[in-house]
């Protein structure tokens, strides 16, 4: 067992982990942060995307020990300080960018990383960026629309209104 300490959503946390413990398991089982989901076992689906030191990372693809000393942000840390939905979260609600909600945390975390990198992405850039996030419910239409809206773009002309 190894001791790890990291900052999760602004709070310092520590725990004892096995060498094989994945970051996602440390967050879910160790910290009770069950918003980060596990949807596959080959690092394809993206339901477990979190930010580690500001970078989007699939939390099933790194060990908890590798995140020792890191700043980790999960979906639970994405709301505004007063508890209201953050800009991206609000856009997902406003534009029906989620249905069952299972892929949603990873989608929001990926979207946040995209907008940091590219504040006004085109539709094609958004679709390309989401290559590592699978959604089975929405057909992506409203996810793409929500991300465009979150970036301040006018989506009123997007089809299917």
């Amino acid at each position: 067992m190894t001791s790890v300490t990291m900052t999760v959503n602004g709070k310092s946390v520590s725990g004892e982990v096995e060498g094989r413990t994945l970051l996602v398991d440390f967050l879910r089982e160790g910290q009770g942060l069950t918003g980060t989901h596990v949807g596959c076992d080959t690092s394809q689906c993206g339901a477990c995307v979190v930010h580690v030191d500001g970078e989007p990372v699939k939390a099933c693809s790194i060990f908890a020990a590798e995140a020792d000393g890191a700043e980790v942000t999960t979906i639970e840390g994405m709301a505004n300080p007063d508890g209201s939905l953050g800009t991206i979260q609000q856009a997902f609600q406003d534009h029906h960018g989620l249905q069952c909600g299972f892929c949603t945390p990873g989608m929001v975390m990926s979207a946040a990383a995209l907008l940091q990198e590219n504040p006004k992405p085109s539709e094609a850039e958004i679709r390309d960026y989401l290559e590592g996030n699978i959604c089975r419910c929405t057909g992506y239409h409203n996810i793409v629309k929500a991300i465009m809206a979150a970036s301040g773009q006018d989506v009123s002309a997007v089809a299917a209104e």
Binding site: R28, E29, G32, L33, T34, G35, T36, H37, V38, T74, I75, E76, M78, A79, L85, Q89, F92, Q93, D94, H96, L98, G101, F102, T104, P105, V108
Partner: peptide
């Protein structure tokens, strides 16, 4: 109206079977 269930899903507070300890 926007979906009321979205708030818990968007904030990581959904309760799926594997989340129940």
């Amino acid at each position: 109206p926007t979906r009321r269930e979205d708030v818990r899903f968007l904030t990581g507070r959904g309760k799926y079977t594997d989340d129940i300890a």
